[in-house]
């Protein structure tokens, strides 16, 4: 279980509070106006922003003492999720061993995962030589290899067209089902939230509200969400 205990995030003039918990294996959408703090919330969980006060707990353990790489999660950023000078296989390999000293067994697993996400035959390509959708697949394939219990998505597919984005969300759902991970996905699009997430976190007016059932939330949106949806 992920617990945000009286969490307060503050960055010059900006303030966000959160106090709730989410069960393992839940799929959560994070929605709200630009600048409300969706990315900051994910950054704090991933360990890039230190909370001003309050605690972040995973299965009862305080995450504060863990470096970003040691936290029980994988995060996909808006862009720059792959190193452009490494091949796709090497980029995936980083998910298994950050020093890339891979065993034959590990290389075989990379091959399998690439096949699994539809990247067979592209192992030796570099990110610049493949499409945006394939880059998204590679980043998700690495998340599969890492198999951490949380997956944070900070709009990594924002630049993709609708069809490709839908494909990616299906793949995310598959990855989540396979690893049993708690998924938190930032999105601007209510359709994405409805299609993907059991529950939705509304981030607005300095508060990240407790997850609410997505369908119910959009059926009867609170004032802040109504203002955002327009």
């Amino acid at each position: 279980m992920l617990r945000l205990e009286r969490l307060v995030l503050a960055q010059d003039g900006f303030r966000l509070t959160a106090d709730w918990a989410a069960e393992q294996g839940t799929k959560l959408a994070v929605i709200g106006p630009s600048g409300a703090g969706k990315s900051t919330l994910l950054s704090a969980i991933a360990g890039f922003v230190a909370p001003e006060s309050g605690r972040l707990l995973w299965q009862g353990q305080d995450l504060a003492c863990l470096a970003p790489g040691a936290r029980p999660l994988t995060i996909l950023f808006q862009d720059q999720n792959l190193f452009p000078h490494l091949t796709l296989a090497q980029n995936l390999g980083l998910g298994l061993r950050p020093d890339l000293r891979l065993s034959a067994e590990e290389r075989r697993r990379i091959e399998q995962v690439m096949e699994r996400v539809g990247l067979a035959g592209l192992a030796a390509r570099k990110p610049g030589q493949v499409s945006g959708g394939q880059i998204g697949r590679a980043a998700l394939a690495r998340a599969l290899l890492r198999a951490r219990p949380m997956l944070l998505l900070d709009e990594p597919f924002a630049a993709l067209g609708p069809a490709l984005k839908a494909e990616m969300l299906t793949l995310v759902a598959d990855v989540a089902a396979e690893t049993g991970a708690l998924v938190m996905m930032v999105t601007h699009d209510p359709k994405d939230a409805l299609a993907f997430a059991d529950r939705t976190i509304l981030v607005a007016d300095g508060v990240a509200r407790a997850p609410a059932g997505t369908a119910a939330l959009f059926a009867d949106p609170p004032a802040a969400l109504r203002a955002y949806l327009g």
Binding site: P68, T74, F77, H85, G95, P98
Partner: peptide, 25 residues
């Protein structure tokens, strides 16, 4: 700016970071 967070989130550090990321970039 471009790859600091990615490197940290994957736990790439020390000499591996120098060898795999810094020197090639």
């Amino acid at each position: 700016a471009d790859y600091g967070r990615l490197s940290t989130s994957l736990g790439i550090s020390g000499l591996a970071w120098l060898r795999l990321i810094v020197v090639p970039r």
